[in-house]
Amino acid sequence: MRIAEAGTDTEPGKPFREVLEQFVNTLRKLGIGARLDPLADPRKLGVWLYPEHRPSRGSIMLTFFFEGDAIIASGDSPTRLGEPELLEAWLVEFVKKSAFIESLAVLREEARQPVEAQLRVNADGRGHAQDVIVTVSACDQEALDALTIGAQASLDVERAEFPGNPQLMAQPAYALLDSAGLVVRVVSSTLNGAKLTIQGTRVA
């Protein structure tokens, strides 16, 4: 992990933010979904982890709080770090913890499983009696995540088997597929036995 140089940047916390962005990028290269997001308090940042290609299935793993020229790292005991190099060293020690290593294994396993997605009748996402929980294969989920916003999408889904889940229907026409945070606006759908073939556009 390369240390970010502060240089002459005047943005508060930028050197620390660059270290965290490098940390998140490293996790992505290891097959883990990860992102760095601002929290409600503008002085706070959160590192979110999730199964790869499933951005809505994540949780916050770490929080950081800017305090003057330093950053406070969350953990068993909050730690004040005055230099980007100290933050990097703290992260190196954090990733060695058994609980963190185990959490990565769980996320990788989840990424190999089919995704339970929501097939919605209403285009605005409002609930409808014929909304169906469907499964999307791990392969199709990865392919969907590789698409840019606005790209055409084509995939098969199957109804998840549990009591109370409506049957797939040719009508009414479905409008949206929300697959763990990846959203397709459905243009057409064709019922083929137990599968529904969806053609649409990725919108999120």
Score class of each variant (00 low, 15 high):
Arg108Lys: 08
Thr148Pro: 02
Phe94Ser: 13
Asp9Trp: 06
Ser59Tyr: 10
Ala105Asp: 08
Val203Cys: 04
Thr197Pro: 09
Phe65Gly: 01
Ala105Cys: 07
Ala151Phe: 08
Leu196His: 01
Gly33Thr: 05
Ser77Arg: 15
Arg43Ala: 11
Gly125Phe: 06
Gly150Trp: 03
Val136Thr: 02
Ala34His: 03
Leu107Glu: 03
Ala111Thr: 03
Pro51Phe: 03
Leu155Ser: 02
Tyr174Gln: 03
Ile149Met: 07
Ala40Asp: 12
Ala111Ile: 07
Ala73Cys: 14
Thr8Met: 15
Val95Gly: 07
Phe162His: 12
Arg54Leu: 07
Val134Pro: 01
Thr197His: 13
Ile60Gly: 14
Pro163Ala: 07
Leu147Pro: 00
Glu21Ala: 12
Gly31Met: 04
Ala117Glu: 00
Arg120Met: 01
Pro55Met: 15
Ser179Thr: 08
Gly164Thr: 14
Gly127Val: 05
Ser103Val: 02
Val136Gly: 00
Glu67Phe: 15
Glu88Arg: 10
Leu144Trp: 00
Ala111Gln: 04
Val121Met: 05
Asp131Tyr: 02
Ile71Asn: 01
Phe16Gln: 01
Tyr174Met: 03
Leu155Val: 05
Leu30Trp: 09
Leu176Ile: 09
Arg159Glu: 01
Asn165Arg: 02
Leu104Ile: 01
Leu104Asn: 03
Leu176Glu: 02
Ser154Pro: 12
Tyr50Glu: 12
Asp41Ile: 05
Glu142Met: 14
Leu177Pro: 00
Val19Lys: 04
Ser188Glu: 11
Gly181Tyr: 05
Gly193His: 03
Leu177Val: 03
Thr10Gln: 12
Thr197Asp: 11
Thr197Tyr: 12
Thr8Gln: 15
Leu196Phe: 00
Ile3Ala: 13
Leu104Lys: 03
Pro78Cys: 10
Asp37Lys: 15
Val136Asn: 01
Asp41His: 14
Thr79Cys: 09
Ile32Pro: 01
Glu21Asn: 09
Leu196Pro: 00
Ala40Thr: 10
Gln118Thr: 13
Ala4Asn: 05
Ala138Lys: 04
Ile149Thr: 04
Thr148Ile: 11
Pro84Tyr: 10
Gln118Phe: 09
Lys29Asp: 15
Arg108Trp: 04
Gly127Thr: 07
Ala123Ile: 13
Ser179Leu: 07
Pro55Asp: 09
His53Asn: 12
Ile133Ala: 08
Gly7Met: 15
Thr197Gln: 06
Trp48Thr: 09
Ser59Trp: 13
Ala160Met: 15
Asp69Cys: 12
Ser98His: 15
Phe94Thr: 12
Tyr50Asp: 10
Ser189Val: 02
Asp76Glu: 15
Ala4Gln: 02
Asp145Gln: 14
Ile149Glu: 11
Arg35Asn: 06
